[in-house]
């Protein structure tokens, strides 16, 4: 049995860490709302004067394009790698898997010079394409694991019924795999929305295409100590992913934890 004293100590430990974890979050919200006066004008100022309306729209476009392209390509690649057993599939899988451990820092400089030569710097495509490539490295790995978990007999049955590999994929396996696909979408959405280094380097000149985190860093440069406005900006940038997290927490956690376990 556990003594009453230990129980008390255990609860005290948890409370202390909960307070430490919450302290900055509560502080930021209180500051942005100018509590205790409760003034939401900082959000309106950030949204219009700080151009956050534009930044959020840009992030929405970039994230939607990246996630859509990444999801379609990952489903197709994962399907082939997981079920079609073609020659070279094993080597190809390892090649894509290697992409999971390529840090952005190692590729962002050459990306900048090559995208600039191609005229893609300061465009949506210039940030969507590299991030799609990163999403595909994870997505192909993730979807392959799902497709391998599909019972062989189901694939046989579909084939016996005369379904082509294409029909089997989109009419049978994708509808069944919605939870796995949703987890992948949730994660790539978060990574793309939150990405900073790629937009910073690629979108270096045109403030009309800046994404939300990049916009926030410029906004901070211009309002060094106007913390009420800055906290409002930070909350605006964080809000979309946080809202999705609160609703789909299970997917975030499952994906981030098992996505890490590569073997």
């Amino acid at each position: 049995m556990i003594s009453a004293r230990e129980r008390l100590a255990n609860h005290a430990i948890l409370v202390v860490f909960a307070v430490i974890a919450l302290f900055p979050m509560v502080g930021v919200v209180a500051r942005a709302l100018s509590l205790p006066d409760l003034d939401v004008s900082a959000f309106a100022d950030a949204w219009t004067d700080g151009h956050f309306a534009t930044y959020m729209r840009n992030s929405l476009i970039v994230t939607a394009a990246t996630v859509t392209a990444g999801t379609l390509l990952s489903i197709m690649a994962g399907y082939a790698l997981g079920t079609l057993a073609f020659r070279g599939a094993g080597a190809l899988f390892l090649l894509l898997l290697a992409g999971l451990s390529i840090p952005t820092e190692a590729v962002v400089i050459p990306l900048y010079f090559d995208l600039r030569s191609a005229g893609l710097d300061n465009t949506y495509a210039g940030v969507v394409l590299p991030q799609t490539a990163q999403s595909v490295a994870f997505g192909a790995f993730w979807m392959r694991a799902y497709f391998r978990s599909v019972p062989r007999s189901l694939l046989e049955a579909a084939r016996m019924d005369g379904a082509s590999s294409w029909t089997t994929l989109w009419r049978v396996l994708v509808p069944m795999g919605r939870p796995a696909i949703l987890t992948m979408i949730v994660l790539t959405t978060m990574w793309t929305w939150n990405e900073f280094l790629i937009p910073l380097v690629i979108l270096n000149a045109d403030d009309g295409v800046r994404t939300a985190p990049l916009g926030l860093s410029f906004f901070q440069g211009g309002h060094q100590t106007d913390y009420t406005l800055l906290m409002a900006g930070a909350l605006i940038v964080a809000a979309p992913v946080v809202v999705v997290y609160l609703f789909l927490q299970r997917h975030f956690i499952a994906g981030m934890l098992s996505g890490a376990i590569k073997e």
Binding site: A80, L84, A106, D114, A133, Q134
Partner: peptide
């Protein structure tokens, strides 16, 4: 036919991640 399914993903991956590396 597996190669056809992988080709688009592989192309984007090779051009925008492997090649920059």
């Amino acid at each position: 036919v597996g190669w056809l399914y992988v080709a688009p993903a592989l192309a984007v991956y090779a051009v925008f991640l492997l090649w920059p590396l």
